[in-house]
Design a protein around this nucleic acid. Structure first.
Length: 506
RNA sequence: GGGCGUGUAGCUCAAUGGCAGAGCAGUGGCCUUUUAAGCCAUUGGUUGAAGGUUCGAGUCCUUCCACGCUCACCA
């Protein structure tokens, strides 16, 4: 493919040739730097406050983000990872040739290096008085931002890259011109670090289990299928970590967790990306109530680490993650919001009628558990703005969760909600191999031929369980959704660096 | 998959079916403390793609592509 250059790009290519003609390498191999931009400004301010006479000398680097040539004087801003600093170039120091070079062959977006002394301009901005400068990397394509300025240390953009498609497809450009996007991903990183911290402090060991699996399981989702050529074997990308992590508890680890990627071959919308990041943990000798307490502490800790507060602003609301969270039994929650008592509707037929009576359009062929789930997501879920645990679920939608002592129709399970969407899912884990085998078989019947959510029976998992699996609590949390909460974004794509988009012919 | 909407210069956006424009960016020039610098001049378009209606289409119609919102789907 031959690259088609725009007029603007052709101009820059010509400038690059002129640089070469002057013996200037537009892409030198090495850079020098004595301070980050922020460090240089701090160093100057410290010296200034101490009344030191010796000048603060600095060699700084960064991308050219603004230029104001004024004849014999030029002001510019460069930006590095720490922020921006203003450059001041004057013919007195540099001579007319260098001034000309900078004004005509350097462009916005170029990476440059500049050396000089720090000083304060008449308007009070700490600035580098440039004694020499170098090209570090010529930018051929102009960044998609027309102009911006710094006011009181804040970058004000007068025309910014806004088109979502371009922002996601060219995330590098989005990050380069939109500092608030960089902040989103810093916060995401802090959140993940806080989660690791929290797990490590509670003596959990971080492990890694297979992404490529001969069988998939642990969640109800369609998998991606791939193939190993040399082994002539079809493999699945994992849809959860659950079955492998619980094998590790059989092996004698008491507390394990994994942070990694799951892949689900399903619809894409503002809370679903085909690949997404999960935290799962398994905790021997604990139950779902202990996990509930632990979850509140964990999320509160993350909010505090990321935002310095347990009260999180989200889409105009204040979400208060201070423990304890509200706790609502699923049955009671549905009585309160839908005025349907699921105990009154022991069959799928009865559930369908009850749901129709309140104006829903349930799938008449769905099993009872799926209907209850549908009812919940339609009626209860949208009301769960403040953090809430919904607990005690019907057994038939929770094939890996342990039944209630004395009530085999219900299981010890909870889901955590906030801002109207599901954040996490946990249960007391089923550890009875005979019951588990029965559930797998049951599930195979419920999800009859043609149902994409039907799952293969994992014999090896049952074998592991037959060696003896201690009682335990298990937990899964969608880290992308947590990142949405921590960054006040209603769309999952805003918190994934390279979200999946349909491919496009260029 | 359905519905609604969007797609025009590098970016942000205008344009009743009647000459495709503005601001910024770019280019040339003036300007020795500016910060959306200012002033003068100036370049820049396959209007997402392909068809159609019309004397004439950015605008109306059809199909397609991509994106957004929404519904459906989504233990």
């Amino acid at each position: 493919m031959t690259t088609k250059y725009s007029k603007l790009e052709q101009t820059r290519l010509e400038k690059m040739e002129q640089l070469r003609a002057q013996g200037i390498d537009p892409y030198p191999t090495r850079a020098q730097r004595t301070h980050t931009n922020l460090e240089a400004i701090r160093a100057f301010e410290t010296a200034e406050q101490a009344g030191e006479q010796a000048p603060v000398k600095a060699t700084l680097v960064g991308r050219l983000r603004s230029m104001r040539p004024m004849g014999k004087v030029t002001f510019a801003h460069i930006e590095d990872g720490s922020g921006r600093v203003q450059l001041f170039l004057r013919a007195n120091e540099l001579g007319p040739e260098k001034m000309d070079l900078f004004a005509h062959l350097f462009d916005l977006g170029d990476f440059v290096q500049a050396n000089g002394e720090m000083f304060r301009t008449r308007t009070g901005e700490v600035t580098l008085r440039v004694e020499s400068f170098e090209m570090l990397a010529k930018a051929i394509s102009p960044l998609p931002a027309a102009k911006d300025q710094v006011v009181d240390g804040e970058v004000v953009q007068h025309a910014t890259l806004a088109e979502p498609e371009l922002r996601y497809r060219q995330r590098y450009a989005d990050l380069a011109v939109n500092p608030e996007v960089r902040l989103i991903f810093r916060r995401r990183a802090y959140a993940i670090r806080a989660l690791r911290d929290f797990m490590d402090r509670h003596d959990f060991i971080e492990v890694e289990t297979p992404v490529l699996q001969p069988l998939y399981g642990g969640a109800a989702a369609r998998p991606f299928i791939t193939h190993h050529n040399q082994l002539k074997q079809d493999l699945f990308l994992r849809i959860s970590f659950e079955l492998y992590l619980k094998r590790l508890i059989v092996g004698g680890f008491e507390r394990v967790y994994e942070i990694g990627r799951d892949f689900r071959n399903e619809g894409v919308d503002r809370t679903h990306n085909p690949e997404f990041t999960m935290l799962e943990f398994y905790w021997a000798y604990a139950d779902y109530l202990q996990v509930m307490d632990f979850t509140e502490q964990m999320v509160a800790f993350v909010a505090e680490q990321v935002l310095g507060s347990r009260i999180v602003p989200f889409q105009g609301q204040q979400i208060d993650f201070n423990p304890p969270w509200r706790r609502v039994q699923l049955r009671q929650g549905l009585i309160d919001t839908a005025e349907i008592d699921i105990e009154d509707h022991p069959t799928a037929e009865s559930m369908v009628q009850a749901m129709r009576a309140i104006g829903l359009q349930p799938d008449p062929k769905a099993p009872r558990g799926k209907l209850i789930e549908k009812l919940m997501s339609e009626v209860l879920e949208p009301t769960l703005i403040q953090p809430t645990f919904v607990y005690d679920y019907p057994r038939d939608i929770s094939p890996l969760a342990k039944s209630f002592p004395g009530d085999p129709r219900m299981v010890e399970r909870f889901e955590g909600y906030a801002a109207g969407f599901e954040l996490c899912n946990a249960f007391t884990e089923l550890n009875d191999p005979m019951d588990q085998e029965a559930r797998f078989i049951e599930m195979g019947q419920d999800y009859a031929e043609g149902d994409d959510d039907r799952h293969p029976l994992d014999e090896d998992y049952l074998r592991a369980m037959r060696y003896g699996m201690p009682p335990m609590g298990g937990f899964g949390l969608g880290i992308d959704r947590l990142a949405m909460l921590m960054t006040d974004n209603a769309n999952i794509r805003e918190v994934i660096l390279f979200p999946h988009l349909r491919s496009r012919e260029e």
